[in-house]
Write a protein that binds this DNA or RNA. Structure first.
Lengths: 205, 205
DNA sequence: GTCTATATCGGGATAGAC
DNA sequence: GTCTATCCCGATATAGAC
């Protein structure tokens, strides 16, 4: 830590993130990673030995980033509606800044589904605990007559899909970059509102 | 049409669909397409000249399939709630049978966004007309105080995302193929219910 | 640790026989 | 239309000098 400047290894990893996120595993080129990092191609191999290794590092990092917030917010001590608001707002902002991430993750999962479980251990995510939390809140705090699992997936869908589908939306509807930014901004309030409105319909009495 | 057996060109296109859908543009191999079609690699070049051409054909076909139903259902004479139900039910079934399609499309749009507009003309989709329809129904039939555009995107998100994220869901929650099938089946009723519940919250009175 | 040079292979594409 | 043979480039990876 005596040197605030990034090490070569870090620069390579950062470069690899940019390239893999934008191009995917098959589309990424070791040469492009090297160029992006401002180093020689062989150095990439020196630090990571082969393409699979560096992809693995990039993928784990991306996955951890996406999951960490989710886990933290839903395990926290807030009320359920507050969790939803916090989550959406955070995710829309985060994903707007990292638009390639979710599609990169989804593609990675199709290619290497086996790797996920080890990844969970590394980032200390327990899906059971997460679902238990949601179950408890949906059933006991709000007393709703709906499967917590569907709610959870709905929240993810409404947060993530519009970001992933950005090129689709922009082209179909001819949105400028400014307009789509505005659209995402609106979703920070529209989506929580939409979900909470929906949940009202499931109140038991 | 005197020959019910598929022509070589058709067999190649079918093979190309399977390979491109599963592997994406960069991951697909001309050799694999040839093998899958049971022909020689050169024949693929003979009919399509190069990789870009055959990808284009595959992509247009996929896009047309996904958009056609959307267009048809939302332009039809049903009530808005009926459209939502019909759409979700159709899409969940269709996407379950073609699980690679939506991710393939989303990736393709990132890679070649320019091609979309010409594609619209080919399949006679008019986004303006579609949104106009939705606008009319949301505002006048249902008298809702919400932006129709957000509703439209929400419907797409809730229909498409869970299918795209299938490996994520299955791995995180340990669902078997049977369980996830059951989950998708449930969504045919859960999602329309969820949306219609949400819309009730926007009724003006 | 960083570079140059090179080995090796695979994939897209073409030429040309049948 | 269909095949074999081949070209050629680009990409991963390694050897080895500095």
């Amino acid at each position: 830590m005596e040197n605030p400047v990034k090490t070569t290894e870090e620069r390579i990893l950062e470069a690899a993130k940019r390239v893999f996120h934008a191009k995917g595993y098959d589309g990424a080129r070791m040469q492009e990673i090297a160029d992006e990092a401002g180093v020689n191609k062989s150095l990439v191999h020196y630090y990571y030995r082969n393409k699979d290794n560096i992809f693995q590092a990039v993928f784990e990092d991306a996955f951890a980033q996406l999951i960490a917030a989710l886990n933290e917010i839903f395990i926290s001590e807030r009320t359920f509606p507050s969790k939803i608001e916090t989550f959406i707002s955070y995710y829309v902002t985060f994903l707007s800044k990292n638009p390639y991430l979710p599609l990169f993750i989804l593609n990675g999962l199709y290619e290497k589904p086996e790797q996920i479980k080890t990844m969970f251990e590394k980032i200390h995510l327990s899906p059971d605990h997460l679902m238990q939390q949601i179950h408890l809140q949906v059933k006991e705090e709000l007393n709703l007559d709906i499967d917590p699992f569907h709610i959870f997936i709905n929240i993810l869908a409404l947060s993530i899909f519009p970001v992933v589908a950005r090129p689709l939306i922009q082209t179909i509807f001819g949105f400028s970059n400014e307009q789509i930014g505005q659209f995402y901004e609106e979703r920070k309030t529209v989506v929580p509102e939409f979900i909470l409105n929906a949940l009202k319909g499931y109140e038991k009495r």
